[in-house]
């Protein structure tokens, strides 16, 4: 476990030392800022225009849910583009540099390697998300009422969605030595999962239910509304574990394929 952390540290440091990492940090902060500003501006406009009568119709309106909810919901889509760039190098780079061969001979188990790679991406993902905490101050500063439950649920959902996408990306990265191909396949699959949400909206009955249950986005939406549902959490935990397990099996292929 300690060794997994050593590997994770090396990997996340590599992001910071590369232009890809720096560009990603900048773009991520920029795009996140835009996605936060839009609902925030809409909210301030609303609060300025609203007459007491209009407020009556908005009973139960939560500014936190309105602003942070829309932010997380929209920004979740951006992760479809971010994750492939983050995950593409994880194992594909090690494979193309053939450093994976050395990793296998260091005192590390296969699990340590997969877990370390995963943690390395999560660590960088954490640093990507860190600047968004400043939105809390901004939100507080404009005098909006803070609903901590909604905000925490939003962050938890965003974290779970992000790690799930990263787990999928890690698996794809483990089956290819080419980073570009790895990124493209990951992007296509994530897009596929996103489309499931549409598919569920154009189908009826059991099918609609099936596609909606399969779609990460359907589960993610609950979090952005401030709803913590056990089935949503289980879905993401399973999603993570499933792709980590596939990654583990995929790196074991060397044992019988050479």
């Amino acid at each position: 476990m300690k060794n997994a952390w050593v590997l994770a540290r090396k990997d996340s440091a590599a992001y910071f030392n590369s232009w890809t990492g720096i560009v990603m940090l900048t773009l991520f902060a920029l795009v996140a800022g835009i996605f936060f500003l839009f609902p925030l501006v809409t909210y301030t406009k609303m609060s300025l225009q609203a007459s007491p009568e209009a407020y009556a119709g908005l009973k139960g309106f939560s500014p936190s849910r309105f602003v942070f909810g829309s932010f997380f919901l929209n920004f979740g889509n951006v992760m479809i583009c971010v994750v492939p760039f983050l995950s593409m190098r994880a194992l594909a780079e090690e494979r193309s540099l053939q450093t994976l061969e050395l990793l296998f001979t260091y005192p590390l188990s296969d699990f340590d390697i997969v877990w370390g790679k995963f943690l390395g991406m999560i660590r960088f993902f954490f640093f990507l998300t860190l600047p968004t905490l400043s939105y809390l101050f901004l939100f507080h500063w404009i005098g909006a009422e803070m609903d901590w439950g909604v905000i925490a649920a939003g962050y938890l959902g965003f974290f779970l969605l992000g790690t799930s996408y990263l787990a999928l990306g890690l698996f794809i990265s483990s089956i290819s030595a080419n980073q570009m191909i790895s990124a493209m396949i990951t992007f296509t699959l994530l897009l596929g999962f996103w489309v499931l949400e549409w598919v569920s909206s154009v189908t009826d009955g059991a099918w609609a239910h099936f596609f909606s249950a399969l779609s990460p986005f359907g589960h993610y939406r609950d979090f952005t509304l401030g709803i913590l549902d056990r089935s949503d959490i289980s879905y993401f935990v399973f999603f993570n574990l499933y792709f980590l397990f596939l990654t583990l099996r995929s790196i074991e292929v060397r044992n019988w394929k050479g």
Binding site: S18, L97, Q98
Partner: peptide, 8 residues
């Protein structure tokens, strides 16, 4: 082939 992390 002496695999090493080239950017380290």
């Amino acid at each position: 082939h002496v695999p090493l992390y080239r950017d380290m």
